[in-house]
Design a binder for these strands. Structure first.
Lengths: 333, 333
DNA sequence: CATCAAACTGGAAACGTTTACCTAGATCGC
DNA sequence: GCGATCTAGGTAAACGTTTCCAGTTTGATG
């Protein structure tokens, strides 16, 4: 592979001049500029990004740590970050954290070894303390989908509790009184907060959610199916089910349908996230929208701003919004 | 950020010794090894990947060029590549080609500037000739989802024609005689080949597909909806529809249902790809499985093998397999 | 015609590693 | 006790750039 020296030699100029041409720098005569450009094409010259990064002490890259690419939620997240990276002509480096503390740490370390200029991190397994330490050592690192008060200005997060509340309030406003909940069995904060929000909304309205009306399962279709079977066998007569996410909701609807319940005529279902899926389901799913793409884009922009020394505003809280489709029925108007 | 010199100074040894410790090399006493390791931790030393890549003339990275991360098909592809990269401790670099020749070229160039060791490329916009040129200049580059005879050993591809044929044969074996097709309106080879395969199978059985029974649309849910509306207005009385992909099939089913046709009792629908979606649809979608994850994994393994000078076998053709679910009805047994 | 600034060009150091080669001391066989 | 062999460790060159600094032209100006 041709180097800058080869180009310089072939063009009869110094490496300094070639470098100036590469970087569109000033102080090069039109004649030499044209000559050098021609030689670069002839030789198939391609600047070595590593050498550049070494000498400039920075490389035009954006690193992303997250989990499963094939999960629509994360795919959307990654898509948002990729979009911003592309707009800024930044190469995107991706590392899977596998929701394990060791792997997440490893992923961040690898990215730091690459001397990534900016970093967007989705971490559920690392402790607050460890993330705070990383954030302090790396000014251009931004957390997404996590809220740590001490470094709040570097966190882009969703108010899960408000989402749970809103879902509960909406159902009650339509006259639903017997409400059940299908939640995730993972002990991370998201399901916990969504559930708390729901409980709070119902309690405030004087119709508290009974523990027996809450089922937990894996946060996917199968988990939703199993949880719903358990729920049905308790024969609670619920007219509405609030579900942890859309994938579970698809399982919920599926089991309800199989058991002769019509959705939404007999039972209303409300999901969470509004991933692609929610539009494909039948009935189309009413859900709380998690604006993850927008959030990912903001996180990426923030990381890039921080890496160039700019400061950023200090509140990046998002609130889920209700997306009305066809899986919820009004019991009264 | 601490450099190897800082570590050497603090540990009272030379940089060579530190380097040996970093790389688990020989010729270091246990005492010094321990000492150096301790200092590295104390200083928070992190080797500079760029400097390393520069001097070793190679970097442990794997590059991927493809299109839309949020499309489940590509997300699965990327997931497969990521998995292999992780297993081999390779950093993954991702570039979006946007299915435009300029952007695809740009994406490949950027990755080459990074001196990626191995490259997996999904290109639909670049010409055979250009890709052949790239492949010849870069021995560790592998194409996925494309078949170019001259560099067949570097292509991992799916026999789309065979998939179309199989879908047609399957429907005919169940007694379907009036078959329609919803295809993609994009002029790339995949839809063309699938359609040709279908036509061939039907023709061989003496029941050729009428041109009027073929509708084209965008390869997504909406495209499937529109195409189906057009098809229905022609009143052809088809008992089965072969659809370009699963996303379109979801639109097809949706419009059929809205118009009072039951799937599969009145009309059978068969999709293509078997992305996540197909299991969420109601009825669950019968479809031709595109083993994209497996193929992506093979492509990544190949690229990595090639980059280390190994040779690879020369046939990487995959064939779609039928996945029977609930959207196809047998008219006879 | 001498002077000076502006415009261009080149030399060389620096970035942080790896590694080939060299050295000094220790060990060993006889 | 002596050369031969081994081992741990150091020295310095190299990787491909960018950029500071110091020339060298060129053209205008006095």
């Amino acid at each position: 592979m041709a180097t800058i020296k080869d180009v310089a030699a072939a063009a009869g100029v110094s490496v300094a001049t070639v470098s100036r041409v590469i970087n569109n720098g000033p102080k090069v005569s039109d004649k030499n500029r044209a000559k050098v450009k021609q030689v670069m094409v002839d030789l198939g010259y391609r600047p070595n990004a590593n050498a550049r990064a070494l000498v400039t002490q920075s490389s035009p890259t954006l690193g992303l740590v997250f989990s499963e690419l094939t999960d629509p939620f994360f795919a959307t997240l990654a898509g948002g970050v990729e979009k911003i990276a592309r707009e800024h002509h930044r190469q995107l480096l991706i590392s899977n954290g596998l929701v394990s503390a060791d792997t997440e740490r490893q992923a961040i370390e690898t990215l730091l070894e690459q001397r990534c200029e900016a970093l967007v991190v989705h971490s559920k397994a690392l402790s607050d303390d460890e993330l705070i330490a990383y954030a302090e050592a790396n000014p251009a690192m931004v957390l997404i989908n996590r809220h740590i008060p001490q470094i709040a200005h570097r966190c882009v997060w969703l108010d899960n509790r408000a989402g749970g509340e809103a879902a509960g309030r909406y159902l009650m406003s339509l006259g639903h009184q017997k409400i059940a909940c299908v939640s995730s069995r993972y002990h991370i904060e998201d399901p916990q907060l969504r559930l708390e929000g729901l409980q709070q909304a119902l309690a405030e309205a004087g119709q508290p959610l009974a523990d027996i009306a809450i089922e937990h399962g894996d946060p996917n279709q199968t988990g939703g199916e199993v949880a719903t079977q358990n729920l049905l066998s308790k024969n609670l007569g619920a007219t509405a089910i609030v579900v942890y996410n859309d994938a579970m909701a698809s399982g919920v609807i599926s089991v309800l349908t199989d058991n002769g319940y019509r959705v939404p005529e007999d039972v209303s279902v409300i999901g969470f996230d509004d991933v692609l899926l929610s539009r494909y389901l039948r009935p189309k799913l009413t859900t709380m929208r998690y604006p993850i793409e927008m959030m990912a884009m903001e996180a990426a922009e923030m990381a890039l701003s921080l890496s160039s020394g700019k400061t950023v505003s200090d509140c990046h809280k998002y609130v889920p919004t209700l997306v009305k489709r066809d899986s919820v029925l009004a019991l009264r108007d």
